[in-house]
Amino acid sequence: MKRKQLFEFEDQRWFPAFLRNYLSDFLQFISNQFDIYKKVTPLLAELVAKSENKTIIDLASGGGGGLFKLSKRLREEDPELKIVLTDYYPNLKAFEYIRKQDQTFTFERESVDARKVPAHLKGVRTQFLSLHHFTEEDAVQILQNAVDSQSPIALFESQERNVPSVLAMLFSPINVLLMTPFIKPFSVGRIFFTYILPLVPLFVMLDGILSALRTYTIPEMDELISRVNGHENFEWKVGRQKSGPAGILYLIGAPKP
């Protein structure tokens, strides 16, 4: 199945911010409720351990990414760990809620572009379920910016470009309907646009299908790395980690000693 650089509704500037936030809230809830990134904890813990700066800069965090559940295990390895949430379209209500639940987290209020991370944000860079949003050129820029700033980087995708991933998204509206009452912070608007005017289930399904069709394969990730100037100065790991019925694709890079 050839990769297609299709657009997702939530990426568009015209897409209502409140709907974008409802979608990212749902993805954050699923990621942490089912702990889907549990199996990659050792990979991320190793990267943080090798870094002088015990801070994770999470890019394209959406509603908080997959780090809320992971953070507890990571802090067992390093109690001083700090995590900064960022996004091009910051979901501030979600960020503030996570901050109240866990003081490990802080966040950036201003928009942060993963292709050009501000110099003051120093640490291990992560992205969860977001690399597929970027074109090949933009994905190379993300890696290039990490190499140029000597910043370790770990990118994780919880889906693959295959038929099972697409089929799974066809049934995602059922999950939205079942789980929306448990998503916090509670929102009357989320209830309305899930059960009365069901735009949230619709766009979760549509963007989910489009996401699967945009996801990079392992060979394609290797190709992205090869296009980065100075990539030979980093140590790279690209692979797939089994996680429940699915797998987590990962691309990890760190400066050579």
Rank of each mutant, 00 (worst) to 15 (best):
A246F: 14
R3W: 06
R109W: 06
H132R: 04
L44D: 08
W236I: 02
R75K: 15
L177Q: 11
V84F: 00
Q159G: 10
G230S: 12
P16W: 02
H132Y: 05
L19F: 02
A114N: 08
N32G: 14
A119C: 09
S226R: 12
E160T: 09
G247S: 15
V176Q: 12
H120E: 12
N21G: 10
E137W: 09
V84D: 01
S111C: 07
S151L: 01
E46I: 03
F18W: 03
K184D: 01
E136H: 13
L210S: 14
Y37F: 15
S243T: 07
V140S: 12
A154K: 13
V204Y: 03
E46H: 12
E8L: 04
Y37W: 05
F68H: 13
R75V: 03
N21F: 01
D138W: 06
P185A: 02
F156E: 03
L213C: 14
T135D: 09
D102G: 06
K54M: 01
N53S: 09
L19T: 05
L224K: 07
F192N: 00
D138L: 04
T86Q: 04
N21T: 01
E223S: 10
S158T: 08
E110V: 02
L44F: 11
E232H: 15
L213W: 06
F105N: 13
E46R: 12
P245I: 05
S130R: 06
K184P: 14
K256T: 07
I248L: 13
E80C: 13
E235P: 04
Y97H: 14
F95K: 06
E235S: 15
E77C: 07
Y216W: 03
W236G: 07
K69R: 14
R125D: 04
F128D: 15
Y22L: 01
V40A: 07
P257I: 02
I209K: 11
K100H: 05
S243V: 03
L92M: 10
Q33E: 14
E52F: 07
G239A: 06
L129Y: 08
L74R: 07
Q33P: 11
S158I: 05
A146Q: 13
I56S: 04
L85T: 00
Q159V: 14
L67P: 11
N233A: 11
V48F: 09
F95E: 10
A254F: 12
N32Y: 06
E10T: 08
L155E: 09
T135C: 09
L143F: 03
P42C: 03
